Simulated assay, not measured.
Amino acid sequence: MIRILVVDDQQLVRMGLRMLFEQAPERLTPDVILMDLRMPGVDGITATRRILAARPAIRIVALTTFDDDHLYPVPAAGACGFLVKDTPPVELLDAVRRTVNGEAPFSRDILNRLVARVVPRPFHLRHP
């Protein structure tokens, strides 16, 4: 049984994700937290840092609309994955299972953008 906590400021998103994961009963100490990044008050990156400082064994996956500004801060805060909210339900369920098994789920687009920022562009020789 996987314990999941959904952190999102939009009620519709919370309700939809709860329906998706309703087979997994909620508990006080989750195995995986799906963390929205844009919330009033404390943003998801700050919340991720605070939660992991108190409970380092919890696995946090950012689940948000895509924004290039969050590419580095999300993993730097300790999140083990980064998924976009339009991830298909089957893939989201699989990502949660993989997270519990120690993997780091990233949406393909996010992973491609991270790699593009880290890996230099191919070197092109100039012809005289």
Rank of each mutant, 00 (worst) to 15 (best):
57 A>T: 13
56 P>M: 02
45 I>L: 07
32 V>Q: 02
101 N>G: 14
61 V>M: 04
33 I>Q: 03
36 D>F: 05
122 P>F: 07
17 L>D: 08
97 R>Y: 06
20 L>C: 08
26 E>L: 11
50 R>D: 13
91 E>N: 06
69 D>Q: 11
77 A>E: 01
86 D>N: 14
38 R>P: 01
7 V>C: 05
128 P>C: 08
92 L>H: 02
18 R>L: 12
10 Q>K: 05
64 T>C: 03
66 F>C: 07
98 R>S: 12
1 M>L: 13
64 T>G: 06
79 A>I: 02
15 M>S: 14
125 L>D: 14
102 G>I: 08
62 A>I: 02
4 I>F: 10
69 D>P: 01
79 A>P: 02
18 R>K: 15
55 R>V: 08
95 A>C: 03
81 G>H: 04
92 L>C: 06
109 D>T: 13
83 L>D: 12
124 H>Y: 14
116 A>Y: 04
28 L>S: 13
122 P>C: 06
119 V>L: 15
102 G>H: 09
5 L>K: 14
63 L>E: 00
67 D>T: 05
91 E>G: 01
114 L>E: 00
106 F>M: 09
116 A>L: 10
79 A>T: 06
3 R>E: 09
50 R>V: 04
11 Q>F: 10
43 D>L: 05
66 F>K: 05
120 P>H: 12
45 I>D: 07
127 H>P: 06
103 E>Q: 15
34 L>A: 10
28 L>E: 14
21 F>G: 00
45 I>R: 05
127 H>A: 12
18 R>C: 04
9 D>Q: 07
106 F>I: 01
80 C>Q: 06
107 S>N: 02
